[in-house]
Computed example of a mutant assay.
Amino acid sequence: MSADGEQIRIEKPNSTTMMEFILLGFSDNPHLQWILFAVFLLMYLIILMCNTIIILIIATDTALQMPMYFFLSNFSFLEICYVTVTIPRMLMDLCTQKGNISLYACATQMCFVLLLGGTECLLLTAMAYDRYVAICNPLHYALVMNHKICTQLVAASWISVIPVVIGQTYQIFSLPFCGSNRINHFICDIPPVLKLACGDTFVNEIAVYVVAMVFVMIPFLLIIVSYGKIISNILKLSSAIGRAKAFSTCSSHLIVVVLFYVTASITYLQPKPNHYEGIGKLLSLFYTILTPTLNPIIYTLRNKDIMVSLRKLLTKLLV
């Protein structure tokens, strides 16, 4: 009888709603905590500084008042938001060596990570469409990509993701959590959080696949089709200088697309994400920190107009 009573006492707390998680982060490498803190802090500052400079240059230079740079400034703002949702929390956990995070804070972080990630997918697609119109239909570019259309594309990239992300987050955090509350990750992402849920999570996993297909794979396929037509048109250009300029303009965006989509696709579309926690953590580190660090560098170093505007700005500041 006492054994049964003990069993009841064990099951009862396990069936209650868990109110706190522990993000393990990089606790398996305690000797690297401060090195990682310094590296991530440096990357965060680089991302903030570079993207802020890009936004400032585009806003102040009249030569850059074009759709391509309008999208780029919005992309830079998105990158600042994206890393701010993830890196400060990581830095705090590395500094304190504690990963305690409340259920509501975890849900909020997941919601914003998904929102900003989904928006980035759609915004990259809008940027690919802009390049497609510019190269494949240049005579109608000014008409098709007017300021109103560009604003609507950016607004749609943000707004269309919101209800889906809120629904996805609510669905996951409505599940009962029992047993361990230790998340083997540095952020509250879907795969590691879903692993801690009790009962059958098949419906939730299917929902993740569907959302990932709609906001990751379909935009990616649209970008690939767009660039297939873009490359085909570029190769038809008679001028070697024209081909080089067109390739230079598009290559930066294509590199960013590949870096982001490949890692995001593997993370959310792998068949058994729970079985590859180490790889999942590494991939997440890639698209949450490394890619946003590289993006402004890729766009500035490979873009002559941005570099010219940057020199003008530095000249004004130094003189």
Rank of each mutant, 00 (worst) to 15 (best):
K229L: 13
M217K: 04
L123N: 00
S248K: 15
L221D: 07
M18N: 07
V164S: 12
T288D: 08
C50V: 01
N74T: 09
M19I: 04
S27E: 14
L115F: 13
V225I: 15
V193N: 02
E120A: 12
F260I: 05
F286C: 15
I159D: 13
A197R: 03
L317S: 13
V210L: 14
T84C: 01
I87H: 01
I183E: 08
M145T: 07
D130T: 01
P176A: 03
Y82N: 05
Q171F: 14
C150H: 03
L41E: 02
F21R: 02
A212S: 15
T17M: 12
Q97M: 13
L64E: 02
I87K: 03
N137K: 11
L122T: 07
L24H: 12
V214Y: 07
Y268T: 05
K98R: 11
F40A: 03
P67G: 03
Y227W: 11
R311S: 09
S226G: 09
A59V: 00
T249F: 07
A128E: 00
I47P: 01
N181D: 07
E277A: 14
Q171P: 00
I166G: 08
N74G: 08
A246G: 11
I57K: 10
M127V: 00
T288K: 11
L143M: 12
L41P: 00
S251E: 09
V210E: 04
T267N: 06
L282N: 10
P192S: 09
T125A: 14
P292V: 10
